[in-house]
Structure formats: C-alpha cells, structure tokens
C-alpha cells in the first residue's frame, strides 16, 4: 500500500521544506509540497499544515490562511477521518478554521521565544500520537510569538480528553516554570473529538534527527510514524 502525504505551502509558510525533508529523507514516505491554491484532497492520505507566518500573520496569526481554498479541501479530509497535523502556525490556522477549539494568543512575555521544551503526552489514542505512551516526555523545540493557548471551555476539553500535550519539566511534572508562553493549563497541543486532527505549537520536524537534538533524541519522528500507522490501520 502506498501512502501519500501533502504539505501545504501557504504564502509565508517557512517550515514547509523542513517538513518535506523529514517526511521524505528521514521517514521515507512519499510527500508532495503543494501550493495552497492547487491542493486537491483526493490525492492524499494525510495533510500537514507547516509552521511559518502565513500571509505575514497580518490581521491575526493564521486567519487569512484559514480562508484559503486549501482549508475547504482539508475539511473534507477532516470529515472522513484522514489525519491532519498543524504545527505552530498550522495550529493557529486550525483554530482559526475551527477544526480545533480555542485560540492562540500572544505569549505572556510579549516576546518571540525559541527554545527546546519538554512535552508530556496526555493522550496517545490519536492519529498523531499512537506510537507514544501516556506520560512519555518528549524533547521538542518551540519558536513562536503567539502560542499561549486559551479556551473558554477548558472543562469540556478535559472531559473529552482533547488535551494531547502539556508543557512539563524533564520529569514530566506540569509546572509553571515549564510553561514557556503562559498557555492555559500548560496546554501545548490538542485534538478534535474524532482524534484525527491535531494541532501543537512545538515543532516535531525540528526534533526528528539526533544530530539536531541537544540530547540526541528523535522524539519528533513519533508524530510522523504515528500518522503512517494510523493511515495503514485505517485503510486496511
């Protein structure tokens, strides 16, 4: 069975080529870089919305891209259960498109922040985390100015088990110091009710090769491995 993934190239996306590199050269899966206006969902088993500053993040991060025809195509995939991963700006696009609940606000420091953080896995029954264990601590970097997760319905998110990752310390403790941007409840990533769409601020594509990681880990790979596994299970 051949699996084919699309990485959408919105104007101003800048982690598109990084995602392509990891999928093709590290994971070894067929992947197309697709210009947003040219994207047709029927050709793909899964889609990635990469990080960057789509449309300059003007007006509000992700909101202009949320009105791209590519999002209408992706909505078809959302409905029929194909996996969708939004990374950083991709996460912002997913909340602006209402694929995912909540919003991403300016960091509490009011500054852009680029650093390696630890993520604790809270839910491994999703399209993008099935190769992880609950409680695993992943080392993955962040790089954003507007990553403070906010929702006015935290309780529902918790009850539905939609919180997938929380910022933690190395031991997996959810502490205020481990929270790099002031996100509500240390939330770093969430999923939809159907578990096929995930958005997170950290960048798994920057943590998928030991040479790039401070402790030679490759935790980012687990996301892409999970996506492939999910597609295989779904189509078999």
């Amino acid at each position: 069975m051949s699996v084919k993934i699309a990485v959408i190239q919105f104007p101003g996306a800048n982690c598109d080529l990084d995602a392509i590199h990891v999928l093709k050269n590290v994971i070894g899966i067929e992947t197309d870089l697709v210009w947003h206006n040219h994207f047709k969902e029927s050709k793909y088993d899964g889609v990635i919305l990469p990080g960057g500053f789509t449309f300059g993040d003007y007006l509000r991060a992700g909101i202009i891209a949320a009105h791209s025809p590519a999002i209408d195509e992706a909505r078809v995939m959302l409905k029929d259960g194909r996996p969708i991963l939004g990374i950083c700006n991709g996460f912002q696009i997913l909340t602006e498109s209402q694929f995912l609940p909540g919003a991403l606000l300016r960091n509490d420091s009011l500054k852009f922040v680029c650093k390696w953080v630890n993520l604790k896995v809270e839910n491994n029954a999703t399209a993008l985390t099935n190769q992880m264990n609950i409680g695993d601590v992943l080392a993955i970097p962040i790089a954003h100015g507007e990553g403070r997760y906010f929702t006015d319905n935290l309780k529902e998110l918790e009850e539905n088990n939609q919180i997938v990752f929380k910022y933690s310390n190395e031991k997996g403790n959810i502490t205020a110091i481990a929270n790099p941007n002031g996100s509500m409840d240390n939330i770093a990533g969430i999923c939809n009710l159907e578990r096929n769409c995930i958005g997170l601020m950290p960048h798994p594509e920057r943590a998928s090769e030991p040479i790039l990681s401070p402790n030679y880990t490759e935790h980012g790979k687990l996301f892409f491995d999970s996506m492939i596994e999910f597609i295989k299970r779904r189509t078999s």
């Binding site: 800048n14 852009f112 680029c114 790089a143 920057r206 040479i211």
Partner: peptide, 19 residues
C-alpha cells in the same frame, strides 16, 4: 537576545546560539 531569534528553522542548526 537569541531566545527572540528563531535559530532552528531550516533544520540545519547543529550548534545553536549559546552552545
């Protein structure tokens, strides 16, 4: 200073700022 700079984009940075 360098926390405010994205020094990882491009997946090439092997020795990063401050290291």
């Amino acid at each position: 200073v360098y926390r405010q700079y994205d020094h990882e984009v491009g997946v090439r940075s092997v020795i990063k700022c401050g290291e």
